[in-house]
Amino acid sequence: MTATEILFWFLSALALFSALMVVISKNPVHSVLWLIVVFFSISGHYILLNAQFIAIVNLIVYAGAIMVLFLFVIMLMNLNANTEPQRNSLVRLAGVVAGGLLLTVMISALRSANEITNSKATMSEGDIGLIQNLGKILFTQYVVPFELSSVLFLSAMVGAVVIGKKE
């Protein structure tokens, strides 16, 4: 086993374990903290793939900003077992169906991924994840989807302000 392989298995195990803990934890604050661990291990995978920029942006955006807001809301709501409303069986059934559908989609996606069987992952090589190459590609080849998604973000921001202003 090379150092990279050891790291890969460690990070994968960590990601899966903490992802499970997100679901299993009784306390929502613990779930959020485990989710942050998931983001960290995924960022570790990005670094193994030599995509340092994506790794660090993943941390800044998800672990640094979005999860802080999650934590914010959950801390203010003060959730605990007593106050959690008991949902009726219809809602539970709907939850099971929705989750099952997602599972089938993911399984079919896994099954159709035939082209990646027997091929090795390129570890610590390739330079598409480095900031210079990524920037060049984003602003040349993918400039239209890139700009469109920024317009989407802007509209979401304006929407949030409008909803916040409504008294």
Partner: peptide
């Protein structure tokens, strides 16, 4: 000497609030 040095600083700063 990572080629995204300043972004790393930024990420750690944003984690500091935890």
């Amino acid at each position: 000497d990572v080629n995204i040095g300043i972004l790393y600083v930024f990420a750690v700063v944003s984690l500091g609030i935890y």
